[in-house]
Design a binder for these strands. Structure first.
Lengths: 346, 346
DNA sequence: GTTAGCACTCGATATTAGTGAGTGCCAGAC
DNA sequence: GTCTGGCACTCACTAATATCGAGTGCTAAC
């Protein structure tokens, strides 16, 4: 529905003020109200003509005959894409952000929590931050502990001070000493290298295999392979979900339930957020645009965040379609940048 | 409001059927309906007399003049304490439970997740399980990694295959070698012992201090002290919150919001659950009994669970006061026992 | 002590009417 | 041709009103 071209400036300005007005008041905007706009020197009747055009193009819509107009998804889309005048961040908010993320360098996960909380606190909607991909993060230390049978508990620490652990199933049972040896070997070879690099090395070592390497090393590499096998991001930190309760758009219990169920399933939300990884900067899904029915009455404003110029995750704000985009967009943008900076290893 | 004594059997039976009926239908129960009970061979008029008595005692209550009666909190209390006929668990549910918790021995936290999920799935309400106190669990392995300045990342693994990590602040900066030494020492002395025992030993070692121990050991013990310092349980696993949406009792958005906020704050809920640790078996909070306003319209059915005959945590079900106690109580009870068994180290 | 009868209360539901914000359309003004 | 005033019309919203019926409390009789 790309129909913005054939609109003259006046219609666009009218759409803009209508959307702004609707976002402000939450009520259908009528021609009389718009006619009071000082820049729009038109009578209600003329405005109605313009609105009729806009409605024909599917940009606005009347809930019923005798109500004003409300933006459709396409209307919002045109608005955020071309009409929006982005408000610079209030300095107090910027302070809050910088201050909030700048706590003494804790574990990465603490920073993510803070970011999510900030997003929700400032916007009074829900904040979400995906866990960073562990690609460029480097390995500090790895360790194996035997469990029953062929199962091994592997613990490894990365330089973002995160402790990861995982249970792997080996092809045979190893003694504690063997495991210790394997860990020693891996620590000596891999520590200080990025996980991406390690995966790379593993593949290579496994290629020119049994030739001259001894069995112990092979076992170690095998275990490393099980440990560092690519696993998709499947988790995020969500804050302020409860802020979403009480938006009239979500007062329908069935809808709300679906939304919260989506939050706890995580899968669908992650899928949605993953789509924003490639985006250059702020990306927005408005209402049904997301294609995820639980989000039908919500908008999602996201921005990828990067560490060392590499995109590692996405953060965003979830709220009703009727949200103050002009404030949320710059806020999400800046938060993403600050989060990236805060995660940067010193 | 202990006023159950001066009630004759008939009144009690009437109260019982009234509560059962109300739990079943969710609508105020009138005298006409009750008069149809085969065991209660009374006319509606007589029943009204009895009901008037019950109302005077604060056990039931009329929403308005021309409605039937509804149990009050005291009424529910009397019901669950003395009148309830507990239904034995359906064998299919028992199967589901045993099967669900008996997955191959994973990490303790996986089992907790499963238990919580089971509680919510079977009851179609919310399930909650507190993390087990780490008292009787024994230490397998401890390790220190330096962070910036005087901060040290400590990792320790317990025999329930849980990996714990924590940042401690030491009084001076240690070299990696020193940390390694400290860890070696602690592993040799403490591994295989329960955390409670370890705390005990730490205190003793710190008492007859500088005398003959060398500085390295002192440092190690100090770090151990920081690591294993008593910290109250402050987390739980919650499942099926969304099941609570859609109960008419919680259809009020403000209430629902408060409840969900309580869930994410965690503190208040933990406090409530802690009170159930001492209880012998199933403990129930009905409505305002909990003293926690967010739970005013909910009931909480809990049972402590034990490993090695020591109570380590609590699990429970959260739902509207109008819940099928006769099914939930035995279910919570059995789940607690099975969870304890599943957590038992093999 | 129990019951039948009866007047009464009051929530729930439907009907009706009135109000007003907003519309679409048309004819005349600029 | 574009804009505007005028006008009939629509329709959600509100309030007022009537009706219904489930359930009650009370009383008098069994």
């Amino acid at each position: 529905m790309a129909g913005g071209q054939d609109l003259n400036e006046r219609s666009l300005y009218l759409l803009k003020t209508l959307v702004e007005r609707y976002i402000q008041d939450g009520q259908p905007v009528g021609s009389r109200l718009l006619s009071k706009d000082p820049q729009l020197k038109l009578s209600p009747a003329s405005i109605r003509n313009v609105m009729a055009d806009l409605e024909e193009m599917g940009l606005i819509h009347s809930p019923h005959t005798s109500a004003g107009r409300v933006p459709t998804v396409s209307g919002y889309r045109l608005f955020v894409d071309s009409l929006l005048t982005v408000k610079p961040l209030a300095s107090s908010e910027l302070d809050q952000l910088q201050h909030g993320l700048k706590g003494q360098a804790d574990k990465a996960s603490d920073v993510l929590n803070k970011a999510s909380k900030l997003l929700s606190d400032v916007t009074r909607m829900a904040g979400v931050v995906t866990l960073p991909r562990r690609e460029s993060v480097t390995l500090r230390h790895i360790e194996f502990l035997p469990m029953s049978n062929t199962r091994v508990l592997v613990i490894f620490v990365t330089d973002d001070q995160e402790v990861h652990n995982k249970i792997i199933h080996t092809h045979k049972q190893f003694s504690p000493a063997e495991l210790q040896q394997a860990a020693n070997y891996l620590n000596s070879v891999y520590s200080g290298r990025s996980l991406a690099k390690i995966r790379d090395l593993i593949v290579r070592e496994m290629e020119h295999d049994q030739r001259q390497v001894n069995q112990g090393m092979m076992d170690a590499v095998n275990m490393a392979q099980l440990t560092f096998s690519e696993q998709p991001n499947d988790d995020y930190v969500l804050s302020g979900e409860t802020n979403l309760m009480g938006f009239s758009e979500l007062s329908d219990m069935e809808r709300l339930k679906q939304l919260f169920e989506a939050f706890s399933q995580k899968r669908g939300v992650i899928h949605l957020l993953d789509q924003c990884l490639q985006a250059e900067g702020v990306q927005i899904f408005i209402g049904e645009e997301s294609g995820y029915s639980a989000f039908d009455h919500c908008s999602l404003v996201t921005a990828p965040y990067s560490v060392n110029d590499e995109v590692v995750g996405v953060l965003g704000v979830i709220g009703p379609t009727r949200m103050a985009y002009e404030k949320v967009i710059p806020f999400v943008d800046v938060t993403a940048k600050l989060l990236g900076a805060a995660l940067n290893p010193k």
